[in-house]
Nucleic acid binder design. Structure first.
Length: 1082
RNA sequence: GCUCGAGUGGUGGAAUUGGUAGACACGCAAGACUUAAAAUCUUGUGUCCAUUAGGACGUAUGGGUUCAAGUCCCAUCUCGAGUACCA
């Protein structure tokens, strides 16, 4: 009987679904284990082979844990709000809820394309998800609780004294009784007010004050505005100055937006990392992003033309002060100038009349530079002197104040005290503008560069002399604080997170406005996303929700009401918030909802979250480190502070799966130039009309190879292709001649085609030394051989029809040529490892099927791997590819080996007549069974060890070795094979279930018991000693394993081979490591 | 620039604590079965020298520690990720 994986897999998937095999119990005597996957966004493109990699690994682990007796929570759901569905809605008018549903459940899109559906694709791979717990962030039953959490954030403030978030009521109470002078909160800068002030304020004034303290707050902030997307973006949604999605430019804009006071949690987010089982690189990225620096803030008084030094203390108005932040207060005596950011507000006030013009010009120039220009141009040193001087707080020296764009307005105070001897940028600046460089480091040479190491001893610094950096810093801060011009300070790079999006397809805020004061809706009901006619912003530039008809809040009746456009709302009716929440709102807490997905009364029941606690194993990509993974930590800590959950960190152990890279196909062509120029020497003939010349990869390699390089590739290979080495040069000439021929042909043609009224220099040419390439869909390949005829029929690649191809045998092929048809020479593409993406035409999907093309030919749209080999093979193969964390290119060639292994396994159970099912049920005994038991128990041991250290690839090899050995032993003992099935079942669950049932078991293998290995079976009676001489292994010698060190030495010495290799010499030393090695030092 | 990670056959990779480098698989080659193909099976396969026996070299490069180094230490190169005038 053959291994019919398609049928077997379908049957067992059905069985699991019907029997709810993987349902997790909320109350269990078993220990709990929570395995979580990255939350997927259900895109229309569906799964490609990269997506399931992490899911397979987590599934293997979840199934393994079940076998070990754990109550496993292994859920799946969808992060189903998001931009692509909305963009699609804008284009087609189709509601994003519909496309999202189709993408998850399957169907057809508006153009009639078949969407396989995420769920169906996942099901085909045999994951052990508890689907009863599925959540979708766009489901009102889910986002009801996202809104609820938002309300908690709105109604909370961060108490620094308690170092945690507290209900806003405790703050209001304090305001009422003693004002804000004693409040120690993470908040915006606010003036001190008294209880009397507070109590005298109007409701509106009080609410506005509270916004300065709320964790979810509304404020005018500089935001990253992306005009192309029509929305603001968070810092982590921007890569290299452009939007991560779509690559659109981003500009800074001042907007009234919701923000989250994540900065309140900076320290806890940082210190919390220490207790997590995450890789150091991931922790480093988060640490970097939080960017803690410890130092001091110091005030420098400004002496400008308006003030004289001696008047500083007495002058009226008070002199301006420049506040700086420094991480090196120990170097304060090295300050020889100050630099302000060009945008700094003090610049206008302190600039002397003489310098006004120059400063204005510099400010203008700096403002014109885009952030990108500033980023890329790090080498140019520029700045301008303001004419003003600051007074060094310790020495009283005059210190010139400059502006320069190496100082950023957005970081710290936008000003630095420049210490050129200790900071390379300050040093460069000082050198460039000839400013004094004071050396305050003992015995350090600073004539060539600044000394930035922190191991120096301070000198020329008054009371700091002879102190090492650390001590000097402490003392400097102490003195600064004592003398009252600054204080010790810790600063973070982390910014508060912008929480508004000018988008439709996201969670609405449960907020309405009275004037510009926000209020939470007083209702426990979900505020559902309203219907709109258009998903674009309104004509007056308001977000898409501005198009909604039903979008006002009736305060008296606590419900949403409709106010016709242009009409004043009646009394007590107010407009609702038009922004929606960002993508990370729903994904910041989804792992909690899985514990209690259907609860209508709470976001999660206390007893359930107390049982399941946080995620024990999270497998996901590293691309969300500064977004999702930081925000969910923030929300988790917040919910912990308010006492809703019993833990502070969401993901205890995390593994970051590597990307499965695509193998893009490249066609190479020669760069073409047209030399056709008019009188002004401008090219005036369109380049496109002149055909591209494509060249087959191997031909190109030979063609490109200079004569001296020929020695690098094996002689045979060249000979094979061109008979003789010396032919290669001739061949190169032949190709060049072909190019010249084509040039001539088209040059001539152009001359005929256009009316030549002026004297033109006409020349079309190919640059044989300049090769460019284009990406081609890998589905038109057979191996590396491109089907030129078929690919050119694809509208995306129809430009190939105009091309001329140099084939593998050196002959030419043209579609339009009178010589129709191909010489039979192949056209080989080049390969490049790339991120797998639709735009690179290199996507391989795990589940798709064969389709028929227009002519009825069977074509493989993408490799239908599950159809072709089965889910078990795919699962094992994706694991077999290599370590989970590593990036690797996808290559299906090796999949046959894994498939062969499962077939071999099947055969072990089908040794009866005509390959019918047969196993020997007698208990194992005797010598042959000893070998079988040894093979099995060795496998049990290694597989267990490997899975527990998350090495998912090595168990597959181990299974293969075991099956190979049992096949060689002709093993058909039920007792052996049954245990093998259990340990294999996490990897290949379908075949395991099938054979398990055939062995007579009536229960699913899912809850079998993972066997314990028995060391007794593994004991070797003999050990094969490698015998080395000076570390070089010469021969093997088999000796009893329990032989003593001395006996081993004696036995080896007596061996005739030893005598031979010693060649009469006496060894200086003999090292014997029992059951390991023997080494002679001669 | 800085921080982190990685470099092992033609390919993916294995070697967990310093102890036989290249397990397992792909690919390739030869053979068996077959009218033929597919499938399957057998054998070989790091490189170089040698008919064989055997030998030399070999884990990015150069050095070091050690009886013994892919593994530890120092320096260099290359690639990848993050970050970017962060004071």
């Amino acid at each position: 009987m053959q291994y019919q994986y398609n049928e077997i897999e379908k049957n067992w998937q059905k069985y699991w679904a019907e029997n709810k095999t993987f349902a997790a119990e909320d109350n269990s005597v078993k220990p709990k284990f929570y395995v979580l996957d990255m939350f997927p966004y259900p895109s229309g493109a569906g799964l490609h082979v990269g997506h399931p990699l992490g899911y397979i690994a987590s599934d293997v682990y979840a199934r393994y844990k079940r076998l070990c007796g754990f109550n496993v929570l292994h859920p799946m759901g969808y992060d189903s709000f998001g931009l692509p569905a909305e963009q699609y809605a804008i284009q087609t008018g189709q509601h994003p809820a519909i496309t999202t549903k189709t993408n998850i459940e399957g169907g057809t899109d508006k153009d009639g394309n078949v969407i396989p559906g995420y769920r169906k694709q996942l099901d085909k791979i045999g994951f052990s998800f508890d689907w009863d717990r599925e959540v979708r962030t766009s489901d009102p039953n889910y986002y009801k609780w996202t809104q609820w959490i938002f309300k908690q954030l709105f109604n909370s403030w961060y108490n620094k004294d308690a170092d945690k978030a507290e209900k806003i009521e405790t703050l209001i109470e304090q305001f009422k009784t003693e004002g804000n002078s004693k409040v120690n909160a993470v908040a915006d800068d606010v003036a001190v007010f008294s209880a009397a002030d507070w109590n005298s304020w109007s409701e509106e004034e009080q609410q506005k004050m509270l916004l300065n303290y709320r964790i979810a707050y509304l404020s005018d902030t500089w935001v990253n505005w992306c005009p192309a997307l029509g929305t603001v973006l968070a810092n982590d949604e921007i890569k290299d100055g452009v939007s991560e999605r779509g690559g659109h430019p981003v500009e800074q804009k001042l907007m009234r937006q919701w923000s989250m006071r994540i900065t309140a949690y900076a320290e806890r987010l940082l210190s919390g990392l220490d207790g997590l089982d995450w890789t150091d690189s991931i922790k480093d990225i988060q640490r970097n992003w939080i960017g803690k620096s410890v130092g001091a803030s110091v005030e420098f008084k400004v002496q400008s033309s308006k003030f004289k030094v001696e008047e500083l203390e007495t002058s009226n108005p008070k002199p301006e002060t420049i506040e700086v932040f420094t991480t090196r207060p120990d170097t304060i005596f090295g300050v020889s100038f100050m630099v302000l950011a060009p945008e700094h507000e003090l610049v206008a006030k302190i600039t002397t009349d003489a310098q006004k013009e120059k400063i204005a010009a510099y400010q203008k120039a700096a403002s014109l530079k885009s952030e990108r220009d500033r980023m890329s141009d790090v080498k140019t040193i520029s700045g301008e002197f303001t004419g003003a001087y600051a007074i060094h707080p310790f020495t009283g020296d005059k210190v010139p104040v400059w502006i320069g764009d190496y100082v950023l307005a957005s970081y710290g105070t936008g000003a630095v005290m420049a210490v050129p001897c200790g900071d390379q940028r300050d040093w460069d600046f000082a050198k460039h503008f000839n400013i004094e460089i004071k050396n305050i480091f003992k015995d350090k040479d600073i004539s060539e560069a600044a000394y930035a190491e922190k191991d120096a001893v301070i000198a020329n610094s008054d009371f700091l002399n002879d102190l090492p950096v650390k001590k000097a810093s402490k003392l400097a801060i102490y003195e600064i604080e004592k003398r009252g011009f600054g204080k010790g300070k810790t600063q973070y790079k982390l910014r508060d997170a912008v929480f508004s999006r000018q988008r439709y397809w996201g969670e609405p805020f449960p907020v309405y406005y009275k004037g510009d004061v926000p209020y939470l809706v007083n209702s426990d009901e979900v505020i559902k996303l309203p219907e709109v006619e258009k998903y674009l912003p309104t004509e007056d530039g308001r977000p898409p929700l501005g198009n909604a008809k039903n979008w006002h809040w009736d305060e008296n009746n606590n419900k949403i009401v409709s106010v016709p456009v242009g009409q004043e709302p009646p009394l007590g009716v107010w407009g609702l918030e038009l922004n929606t929440m960002p993508g990370w709102a729903g994904s910041s807490w989804y792992f909690l909802r899985y514990m209690d997905p259907k609860n209508d009364n709470e976001f999660v029941a206390k007893e359930k979250v107390d049982y399941w606690k946080n995620v024990d194993l999270y497998i996901g990509g590293a691309e969300h480190v500064t977004g999702h993974l930081l925000y969910s930590r923030f929300w988790t800590k917040f919910l912990y502070d308010l006492g809703y959950i019993p833990f502070e960190e969401p993901f205890q152990k995390m593994i970051n799966q590597g990307m499965i890279q695509g193998n893009s196909a490249l066609v190479y062509n020669f760069k073409k130039w047209t030399g056709l120029v008019d009188d002004d020497k401008r090219p005036c003939f369109p380049l496109e009309n002149f055909p591209d010349v494509y060249i087959s990869k191997n031909v190109l390699d030979l063609f490109n190879r200079k004569e001296k390089d020929l020695t690098r590739i094996s002689k045979e290979k060249i000979d094979e292709a061109f008979n003789y080495n010396e032919e290669v040069r001739k061949y190169r000439i032949k190709i060049i001649n072909q190019l010249r021929e084509i040039e001539k042909r088209y040059t001539k043609k152009y001359k005929e085609d256009i009316e030549i009224s002026k004297e033109f220099l006409v020349q079309c040419s190919y640059d044989e030394n300049f090769i460019t390439s284009k990406k081609i869909d890998i589905n038109y390949l057979d191996g590396d051989n491109l089907d030129i005829e078929r690919v050119s029929k694809d509208s995306r690649f129809s430009f190939l029809k105009e091309g001329i191809f140099i084939l593998e045998d050196g002959s030419l092929f043209e579609f339009n040529s009178s010589l129709s048809g191909r010489s039979g020479g192949a056209f080989i593409v080049g390969r490049e490892v790339d991120k797998m993406s639709k735009s690179k035409y290199n996507v391989v999907t795990p589940t798709s099927t064969y389709e028929l093309d227009k002519d009825g030919n069977k074509i493989q749209t993408s490799e239908g791997l599950v159809e072709k080999y089965g889910a078990d093979t795919l699962r094992c193969y994706e694991m077999f590819l290599g370590p989970l964390e590593q990036h690797k290119p996808w290559d299906t060639q090796g999949i046959t080996g894994v498939n062969g292994f499962l077939k071999k396994l099947w055969r072990l159970f089908h040794t009866g007549e005509n390959e019918s099912f047969y196993v020997d049920t007698t208990p194992p005994s005797g010598e042959k069974e000893g070998a079988e038991l040894k093979s099995l128990h060795k496998t049990i041991k290694k597989v267990k060890e490997d899975i527990e250290r998350f090495s998912f690839n090595t168990p597959v090899s181990t299974f293969m070795i075991c099956v190979n050995e049992l096949t060689a032993l002709k093993c058909n003992k039920k007792a052996i094979l049954q245990d093998l099935l259990i340990i294999l079942s996490p990897y290949a669950p379908h075949i395991a279930e099938e054979l398990w049932a055939k062995l007579g078991n009536t229960e699913s293998i899912t809850y079998a018991v993972f066997p314990k290995h028995n060391e007794e079976y593994l004991v070797e009676s003999n050990h094969k000693y490698p015998v080395s001489f000076n570390g070089k292994m010469r021969f093997m010698l088999e000796l009893p394993a329990n032989m003593s060190k001395d006996d081993v030495e004696a036995a080896v010495m007596a061996n005739e081979q030893t005598v031979k290799y010693l060649a009469g010499q006496t060894p200086k030393k003999v090292i014997v490591v029992p059951k390991k090695i023997v080494n002679f030092v001669v």
